[in-house]
Amino acid sequence: MAPIFEQASEWNLMAALFIGIAFGWVLERAGFSTSRKLAGVFYGYDFVVIKVFFTAAITAALGLLFLNYFGVFDFENVWMPTTYVTPTIVGGVIMGLGFVMGGFCPGTSVCAAATGKLDALAFIGGIVLGVVLYTFTYEPLWETLRGKGKLLIEGSDTPGKVKIGELIGVTEGVAVLIFIAFGIFVFWFVEKIKKTYNIKDVEY
C-alpha cells in the first residue's frame, strides 16, 4: 500500500533524490532549461510549457485515480494541499509577474542552472532573497493574509482539503474526465493558433 517509504526515513530521502533526477532529466529533455522557450508561452511563439504541463497533470491525475481504484493507493495517506483561496490567488499573481520578468519558475531555474545558464543562477539568487524578505516581513505583512479564505465544504471530514469533484459536485472519475476534456481542448486550441499564425517551433 502506497506510500511505500516511511515519511521521515532515509529510504524516502533516497527516493527523493532519484525522483528528483528523473524530474530534472525530463525538464531538460522537454526544453525547460531555457527561459526563452518558457517565456514563449506568454507571447505565443512557443507552447511547449502548456503541452508538457497539462499532459503531465492529466497523466498523473488519471494514473493516481486508477491506482486508487486498484486499491494500492489512498489519497488520504499522501500530500494534499489545503485550499486557502486568497493567498493562493495573491501569491499566484505575484509569481506570474515573476515568471514574465524572470523567465523561469523555481523548478525550471534549478534545471537551467544545471546546464550552465547564469541567468538561472541569478534567478535562484532572487528566490533566496525573496524567501528571506518574506520570512523577515512575515508577521507584519503576510501572516493574516496567508490564512484567509479557507475553502470549506459541508460534511467534509478533512476541512479545507477540497478536491475539484467535491466543489462542483461530481465523482472523482467524472472530475478527471472533465479535466482530460479540458486538456484536449487546450491542446487543440494551441495547435490551432500555431497553424493559423504559422508559428514554427523554436530551438534555443
Binding site: 493567498p87 509569481m95 509577474l97 515573476g98 515568471f99 514574465v100 524572470g102 535562484i124 528566490i127 528571506v132
Partner: peptide, 12 residues
C-alpha cells in the same frame, strides 16, 4: 523575477 517567485511561493 526570482524575488517575486520567492515571495509568491511562500504566500501561495
Amino acid at each position: 523575477g526570482g524575488i517575486l517567485f520567492g515571495i509568491g511561493s511562500q504566500l501561495g
